[in-house]
Design a protein around this nucleic acid. Structure first.
Length: 518
DNA sequence: GTGATCCATGATACTACACA
DNA sequence: TGTGTAGTATCATGGATCAC
């Protein structure tokens, strides 16, 4: 155990394997005698030595191995709820990776999932009979067989983060596949809708069929019924009677397609509706798909796997590589999403003190100075730094580009900058349409980003040249953020987003060369 | 024209368990 | 360890539809 070489690693594996075999949440070095007697693991030398050691009351400890092999501190071991015969059945199960009762409860920790739901969420078929150990767990824990609410002693006191979750997938590239997806209704912050992609044209939008959630009493938690008279289609469809909803194609990059096995058709004989109505059911508890809804209702709040963003979020994801910067920009975008007329002061600077060109950082910052042509009380600003090619115009363009990423779609944006060269680059870029000519403009990477961003968001961009270091309040703030952004701000890197338009582009040391190359 | 998917239905394979 | 049983999902089929 103390050996750092091959012997130690082999011992580690030999200890790890029987832990999984005997369904222990802790390293078997820690197990007491009654727990060892629950299940015998055969053909494992390390296990035999540890059991013999336990019988002789000898002590062996390794804090490092024990902590590495501890699956969870919390949770009720399923083995503790079963008799010896049922434990035998439970330990034969090798595919589902179930160790504690909490893995079988829903996100709110008050209901037991079914055998079929467990299998589906683990990507298994779930064919065959329900095993005796699962039936025993049901018998022991369920307070109500119909609602599957568990007895108070087995409920979790807070949000159950050990619950099984459905892993959403990206929407299939195959235009024939009618994916089931979940999407957010803009008016209801944490409420999600179901949709079926019925058409994937080559243009910029997909068409979704909106399916409404229904409550039922036939043993499944969520039923899906096609919705006529869709309330959320005012943006996508001109006809309010249609149940279709058009979505931006950028949507497809998000993992929001529900795996096929999670949705199945309800048999006509089981349906409470007339025989003509198609009903689908969700083969998992609703919380397994919507953990964010649960997390917002229960405290403490923790970030969870499924977060669906807005179009602005998707555009930020498209251009920015660093997660920290993305989070900051999205937070600013949320504050501005109500407004359609914004004036933003931008500024950029180069770290002239750094002698190593490779380590020079570009300080970028912007401050929102006026909203709907009125001065704002609360400061909305961003300060950060940009990597690669330390040029002052690039810094100015970076600040403008970042500012455009946070503004709402369809808005009028007035950018105030002290760099006439930045204004010149943007104006030149807007006049050049051909890809070949675009690449002849200096700083074309950010210039292209700005043009694409305006196009993606349908922005009206107006550029104003202001005097550097003027006395205006927000210009001062922008100046004061200069050093802060360059020294303390998160260093961001732009994605090579134009790889969608260009098959090849010049790169030096993994960095895009954004000036004319001969 | 080819191939993939959807749909409904019936046949079959799969899985776990009981028992000898 | 092998066999039989029960419950369930999956497969095969063929027509219709749609994308390539």
């Amino acid at each position: 155990m103390n050996d750092n070489g091959a012997l130690g690693r082999t011992t580690d594996i030999r200890i790890r394997q029987p832990q999984l075999d005997c369904k222990s949440k802790r390293c078997i070095i820690n197990l007491d005698k009654p727990r060892f007697e629950k299940i015998k693991v055969r053909h494992n030398l390390a296990y035999n030595i540890i059991t013999e050691r336990s019988a002789l009351n000898l002590l062996a400890k390794s804090e490092q191995i024990e902590s590495e092999l501890c699956l969870t501190e919390k949770g009720t071991e399923i083995v503790q709820l079963l008799n010896n015969k049922q434990v035998g059945s439970f330990c034969k199960e090798k595919k589902l990776n179930i160790f504690v009762l909490e893995q079988l409860l829903n996100q709110e920790g008050d209901k037991l999932i079914t055998w079929q739901q467990l299998n589906k969420m683990r990507g298994k078929k779930g064919a065959g009979r329900k095993p005796v150990w699962f039936s025993a767990i049901e018998g022991k824990t369920l307070a109500n067989q119909h609602t599957r609410v568990v007895k108070t002693a087995y409920k979790t006191s807070e949000n159950n983060f050990m619950a099984c979750k459905v892993i959403l997938k990206a929407i299939s590239e195959d235009r024939r596949v009618q994916d089931w997806v979940i999407f957010k209704n803009k008016d209801q912050e944490h409420s999600y809708k179901f949709g079926k992609v019925i058409s994937k044209p080559k243009e910029s939008t997909y068409t979704l069929e909106h399916w409404n959630k229904t409550n039922n009493s036939e043993g499944y938690e969520i039923g899906l019924i096609k919705y006529s008279g869709c309330e959320i289609n005012e943006k996508g469809s001109e006809n309010s009677d249609e149940s279709s909803y058009k979505i931006a194609k950028g949507f497809k990059v998000k993992k929001r397609a529900v795996p096929r096995q999670m949705i199945s058709k309800v048999r006509k004989s089981d349906s409470m509706y007339n025989s003509e109505t198609k009903i689908y059911k969700l083969n998992c508890p609703k919380e397994a798909l919507f953990p964010l809804e649960v997390a917002m209702r229960t405290k403490p709040y923790q970030e969870v796997a499924v977060i669906l963003g807005s179009r602005v979020d998707e555009i930020i994801n498209k251009y920015i590589e660093n997660n920290g910067t993305k989070i900051k920009l999205k937070a600013i975008a949320r504050r501005l999403e109500k407004y359609r007329d914004l004036q933003i002061i931008t500024d950029g600077s180069v770290d002239i003190e750094a002698t190593d060109v490779g380590k020079k950082r570009l300080g970028i910052r912007f401050v929102v100075s006026r909203i709907n042509n009125q001065a704002i009380e609360e400061e909305v600003s961003f300060a950060g730094a940009l990597e690669d090619w330390p040029k002052s115009t690039r810094a100015e363009l970076g600040a403008i580009g970042f500012a455009l990423l946070v503004v709402p779609c369809g808005s009028i944006v007035r950018i105030c900058t002290d760099s006439s060269s930045a204004i010149s680059v943007i104006e030149k870029s807007s006049l050049v349409v051909e890809t070949r000519n675009r690449l002849k403009v200096r700083n074309n990477h950010i210039g292209w980003l700005i043009q694409e961003c305006c196009k993606d968001k349908n922005l009206v961009l107006r550029l104003y040249k202001v005097k550097a270091h003027s006395d205006e309040k927000f210009n001062k703030i922008a100046d004061s953020l200069a050093k802060q952004g360059r020294i303390l701000g998160i260093t961001s890197r732009l994605k090579e987003f134009w790889s969608n338009s260009l098959e090849t582009y010049p790169v030096w040391n993994t960095t895009v060369i954004d000036r004319p190359v001969r």
